[in-house]
């Protein structure tokens, strides 16, 4: 509408570029994660396929695509098929508002931050419905755990970001990055950052918060009945989720693309990959808590902390005028 042809082409290139980059990062993370886990746990990790095992994702992909795509006869067929797609679609849609560089973002929404929260709250359906549709008690328990966990941690995930919104005076992600020119928000919003990081780990249900798929208790949790490419979608969705949360931590608290010398997009990816590394380090080192400990931590520690952070930030901004 009212755009010139080169502008439209540029926009399309950004859209497909973001899509391609995100999908390749998600695939590459399969290798990165297993190598880093090996490094931190003093073992090798995959090192057979290609130099340093770098072609491992390719081998994994061939395996996943070649597997029989099976739907259990007792499953609720339409919902069973729909569930894995939801997680990938919601996470990919959320990437639309991430500003990779001053001029590179798919959509410059004024309610960008809320848009991300909305899509992350829709992502819960993937796990909940996947577990329910499998008609398997382990899957159902995993799905129940996942939905309770994600609803709980979503509440203060939103609250932890409101301090950032107050400081920046906008829900627009680009404006939030611009507001950090003088000082990264991680300094005034340190508690907000810690809460968002923990909530992010819980939202992507990664270890130590991977109770929905705890293999020592629940076989494979909500995706017990999934195989082939449908399982692959859950897998890709998880890696995309990690990338999204890391990119958003960089955007909200570490000045997004801002940085000296290097081009903006490079800074953005350096920061994002640093937090992806933190995610993997958490998995490599921390044990899993009990489920009631997880929920108690959420409601009794994180929620009051998020509210206190909000009150103090608001008070200081009000006092400073």
């Amino acid at each position: 509408m009212g755009k010139t042809v080169p502008e439209t082409i540029r926009h399309l290139i950004i859209v497909f570029g973001v899509l391609a980059v995100m999908m390749s990062i998600a695939a590459g993370l399969i290798w990165v994660e297993r190598r880093l886990l090996g490094f931190w746990q003093d073992r090798y990790g995959p090192n057979r396929v290609g130099p340093f095992g770098i072609l491992q994702p390719l081998a994994d992909m061939i395996k996943v695509f070649a597997k029989e795509d099976w739907v259990p006869p007792f499953a609720d067929r339409p919902v069973f098929i729909l569930a894995p797609a939801i997680i990938v679609v919601t996470v990919l849609l959320a990437f639309a508002v991430v500003p990779f560089a001053p001029s590179i973002s798919v959509a410059d929404l004024n309610v960008g931050l809320l848009y991300f929260l909305a899509l992350s709250s829709l992502g819960v359906y993937s796990v909940a419905l996947g577990g329910w549709a499998s008609d398997n008690k382990y899957a159902l328990i995993g799905a129940l755990r996942a939905s309770a966990q994600m609803i709980s941690y979503e509440v203060f995930m939103g609250l932890s970001l409101m301090g950032v919104v107050m400081l920046a005076g906008s829900f627009n992600l680009r404006a939030i990055v611009e507001a950090q020119r003088r000082l990264w928000f991680v300094v005034p919003q340190f508690f907000g950052f810690v809460i968002f990081l923990i909530a992010g780990v819980a939202e992507t249900h990664r270890l130590p918060f991977d109770l929905p798929e705890a293999e020592s208790e629940l076989v494979a949790g909500f995706h017990s009945e999934y195989s082939g490419m449908k399982f692959g979608l859950f897998f890709v969705g998880e890696y995309l989720g990690i990338t999204l949360i890391s990119a958003l931590i960089a955007t909200f608290f570490f000045g997004g693309w801002l940085g000296p010398l290097l081009p903006p997009a490079v800074w953005f990816f350096i920061k994002t990959f640093f937090f992806i590394g933190v995610f993997i380090l958490l998995r490599a080192t921390l044990p899993r808590p009990r489920y009631d400990q997880l929920i108690r931590l959420g409601w009794k520690v994180m929620l009051p902390l998020a509210l206190a952070n909000l009150v103090v930030t608001g008070g200081i901004i009000l006092a400073a005028g």
Partner: peptide, 20 residues
Amino acid sequence: ALEVIIYAGAIMILFVFVIM
């Protein structure tokens, strides 16, 4: 955005939870 976060994201997932 609030409609999606609160109704579609939070309240309906509780419905699904109970039905499950």
